[in-house]
Design a binder for these strands. Structure first.
Lengths: 202, 202, 202, 202
DNA sequence: AATGAATGAGAGTTCATTCAT
DNA sequence: TATGAATGAACTCTCATTCAT
């Protein structure tokens, strides 16, 4: 009888709030972002925020889940679309290269802040671990297929290599945190790619 | 005629406060640690803390500086003591391997939180950058000497490789954040070492 | 659909907070009054106070501005309503005479504390100076018109006399600070008026 | 048997502490001056300060007493040295004129701050009142002698005039609080003197 | 569902005062 | 007597959360 806001509307709003919160978290960091910041950014009331999320932390966590889902999905899509294992890894490096350095830096800072934060809450550690495992499995499969197709060396330990690949990616993130000139980053990105590729093939 | 306590006493106290603060920061994180936490942990008054450090941030920064100094000093000492470049790099990996995993994890969490925190304060970015540069210079020299001695490949870009080595080290730190079984870490550590060495030699 | 309370309500609350703050400042002095004092006096929360004013100093300053505005406005109104310059000056003395001594004393104490406080902050010195200048201009015009109408002596330096009038008014305030019997004040008030009038006419 | 610090030494030290405290109070105001400020200024320890004065307020109060004693003494000395009543009043104005404006301003600010402060403590109100009465008595005598000698008008109410003179002096202090150009002050000082003199004579 | 005024616990920091040496 | 490290109550201000409208 009442207009009854549709589920679709609610879902849309949820998403828009999450997007706004992400914008703020990326901009100022989780702890430094206040509920007021988010509400102001979204031109929405604080109370409304609490109608969709039970706490600031809740937003953060859901955001992280979304982010992880996204990452796995992207990886998965890439996996389906790309024929060769090598090409796929190259794609992943390519994505780093394409992003404006400043934007990338902010994102990575957010990512790192979340990892630190998550590492202190057992339930987040567990869920992050689950996501990581999913991503590693995918990488595993990619590397295995590359091994089978002869792109990678036959004695490659793909599970270890997958893990290592991930670590390298995060290391890259860390070095991006401190500002330096753009050319420097491009160079190290190339080198890192070369190193990983060599590790996989030779 | 005076409680004008010795410099040694003060220095000791300074150090003990710093140690207590570190304990708390490592345990709960910088932002989550309150001045009261530190005071309570040390069984001293809040006011006393401020007699030695002008702010909570100051403690954090001095701790970070000490840590960085230490890192550079360790690197430097290693450089002097070790004859071969390869041996030295191996030593660095060895140090990771030797630390109890749990302790390492807490330290690294602190390190990451600091990096995130620092990345938002220009003055800290600058000083961190300075430390990084010092470390990179040392690595540079090591790699160059290894190149000259024929341990590493002649076409190695040592400056880029130094940077890359650092990134790899930080990536390792990141993957340590999420708990997993110890054996897994040992394995990836070995692989990472192998990868880097191959990159330097072949 | 909204507690988006009316502007009128907010304005009223603002005013009530200001009134409460004034009460406390007058009672205990600015520095001695704590935010808790004001909140307690108003039966509202500390946080609420900060929703209306950004700091304790802000309340103080707005209070002082309001007071100064009031003073200038009163002077201005008096100027418009009163035909003769002499009559107007008499009115001003009359206002002093009418106020209950005890209330006046508390107000003046607040005024003096503010002047002392303001004299150490350049930005307040400037705004106070601006108010003073406005008041002096009005007095100037009054005195000039009295000169032209023949009420005051033709060689009167009205700008200097305006300033002097103000100084005398403040001096009166100071002598009110120390308690003494009421009759004494009445007498000196009369004398001061006589002195000023003589200065203006003879 | 022990060296036993002489009374003279102690008195000297007391005086030097008071002087140092005054310097700080004049410089920054009573509330804004910390015990550390005073100790630092005097190159003395905080504990030592408490050996001579039981509290910060105690210093302030003793300073005020000294100041009042001084004022009365100066007035008294002036009274003895100067033959004519008129000449004596002129002397008092002269003292204002001689002081560097900036120094004067700081002193007066201190004076006003003290008056405000004192007006809230009954015991200080009483003692200030006593000093004021002493000063007024002296002025009274001066004015009476001027009346007798024919310098002042025969119908002068000297007790009221004495009070008024004091109020004028304080009003001058207040107008000095806000900065303005020096010439302006000189002018108003002259005018104020003229006004008072006229009041006494005509 | 939406609003934003109100809340109040708790944060970092200051400083007059004490007291062991 | 002199010292200054230590204290801790009190301060101003913040902000996640609630709830009457």
């Amino acid at each position: 009888m009442s207009p009854k806001v549709t589920e679709a509307y609610k879902e849309e709003k949820r998403a828009s709030i999450l997007a706004g919160a992400l914008h703020c978290f990326v901009d100022k960091g989780f702890q430094a972002t206040t509920i007021d910041d988010i509400a102001r950014h979204l031109h929405i009331s604080k109370g409304s925020l609490y109608g969709y999320f039970s706490s600031k932390e809740e937003m953060y966590i859901q955001l992280a889940h979304a982010r992880m889902d996204d990452m796995v999905a992207t990886l998965d899509a890439l996996y389906r679309e790309t024929s060769s294992a090598k090409a796929m890894l190259r794609h992943m490096f390519e994505r780093f290269r394409r992003q404006p350095l400043d934007e990338l830096r902010r994102w990575l800072t957010f990512h790192l802040e979340f990892m630190t934060y998550a590492s202190r809450r057992p339930e987040l550690v567990a869920s992050n671990r689950a996501y990581l495992d999913k991503a590693l499995q995918l990488l595993n499969r990619i590397l295995a297929s590359g091994k089978q197709s002869g792109e990678f060396r036959p004695d490659l330990d793909e599970s270890s290599a997958a893990y290592l690949f991930w670590a390298v990616r995060d290391g890259l993130a860390m070095s991006f945190l401190l500002d330096g000139d753009e050319a420097e980053y491009r160079r190290i990105l190339d080198d890192m790619e070369a190193m990983v590729m060599k590790h996989l093939t030779v």
